[in-house]
Amino acid sequence: MKRFIVFGMMLPGLLLLLAGCHSDKKQADSIYEELKKSASYEKDFVANQEKLDQYKSPCQNAISPETVSSQTIKGR
């Protein structure tokens, strides 16, 4: 009887372990394709961001939000 109980408790765990270990090539290929799309979007973003950075004025680079917030706190 004890063996039956032990086996009954181990079987669901074993089944879950085996179900989680199987390879699903179709799902892996789908994830890979989505990651490739995401990477291409990021490349476009970087290229556009670099173009925009060229048009920043030097004055915008000198004043950062950190500088403004630290000056505001010191002034109180």
Results as ranks from 00 to 15, higher is better:
Leu16Met: 15
Leu16Val: 07
Leu16Arg: 02
Leu17Ile: 03
Leu17Ala: 13
Leu18Phe: 12
Leu18Tyr: 08
Ala19Trp: 05
Ala19Pro: 00
Ala19Leu: 09
Gly20Thr: 01
Gly20Lys: 01
Gly20Leu: 04
Cys21Pro: 00
Cys21Asp: 01
Cys21Ile: 02
Cys21Thr: 02
His22Lys: 15
His22Ser: 15
His22Val: 15
His22Phe: 12
His22Ala: 12
Ser23Leu: 12
Ser23Thr: 08
Asp24Lys: 03
Asp24Leu: 09
Asp24Tyr: 03
Asp24Trp: 01
Lys25Gly: 02
Lys25Leu: 14
Lys26Phe: 05
Lys26Trp: 01
Lys26Ala: 15
Gln27Met: 11
Ala28His: 01
Asp29Asn: 05
Ser30Val: 01
Ser30Thr: 02
Ser30Phe: 05
Ser30Gln: 07
Ile31Gln: 05
Ile31Asn: 02
Tyr32His: 08
Tyr32Ala: 15
Tyr32Lys: 10
Glu33Leu: 13
Glu33Gln: 10
Glu34His: 10
Leu35Cys: 05
Lys36Ala: 15
Lys36Thr: 07
Lys36Leu: 15
Lys36Phe: 04
Ser38Glu: 10
Ser38Thr: 07
Ser38Cys: 06
Ala39Glu: 13
Ala39Cys: 04
Ala39Tyr: 10
Ser40Gly: 05
Tyr41Gln: 13
Tyr41Asp: 14
Tyr41His: 12
Tyr41Leu: 15
Tyr41Gly: 04
Tyr41Ala: 10
Tyr41Ile: 11
Glu42Met: 14
Glu42His: 12
Lys43Cys: 09
Lys43Phe: 12
Lys43Gln: 14
Asp44Ile: 06
Phe45Pro: 00
Phe45Gly: 02
Val46Cys: 06
Val46Gln: 13
Ala47Ile: 08
Ala47Arg: 03
Ala47Trp: 00
Asn48Thr: 10
Asn48Phe: 05
Asn48His: 11
Asn48Lys: 13
Gln49Lys: 13
Gln49Ile: 07
Glu50Leu: 15
Glu50Met: 14
Glu50Arg: 06
Glu50Ile: 09
Glu50Cys: 03
Glu50Pro: 00
Lys51Leu: 14
Lys51Gln: 13
Lys51Trp: 00
Lys51Ile: 13
Lys51Gly: 05
Lys51Met: 11
Lys51Asn: 11
Lys51Cys: 03
Leu52Met: 10
Asp53Met: 09
Asp53Thr: 03
Gln54Leu: 13
Gln54Val: 08
Gln54Met: 12
Gln54Gly: 08
Ser57Asn: 04
Ser57His: 06
Ser57Asp: 10
Pro58Asn: 13
Pro58Cys: 05
Cys59Met: 14
Cys59Arg: 10
Cys59Val: 12
Cys59Asn: 11
Gln60Leu: 12
Gln60Asn: 05
Gln60Val: 08
Gln60Lys: 07
Asn61Val: 08
Asn61Ser: 11
Asn61Tyr: 08
Asn61Cys: 03
Asn61His: 09
Ala62Asn: 04
Ile63Thr: 05
Ile63Tyr: 07
Ile63His: 03
Pro65Gly: 07
Pro65Thr: 00
Pro65Met: 04
Thr67Gln: 11
Thr67Asn: 02
Thr67Arg: 12
Val68Thr: 08
Val68Gln: 00
Ser69Tyr: 03
Ser69Asp: 02
Ser70Cys: 02
Ser70Phe: 06
Ser70His: 04
Ser70Pro: 00
Gln71Arg: 10
Gln71Trp: 09
Gln71Met: 13
Gln71Ala: 14
Gln71Thr: 04
Thr72Cys: 09
Thr72Asp: 05
Thr72Ser: 12
Ile73Phe: 14
Ile73Tyr: 10
Ile73Ser: 12
Lys74Glu: 14
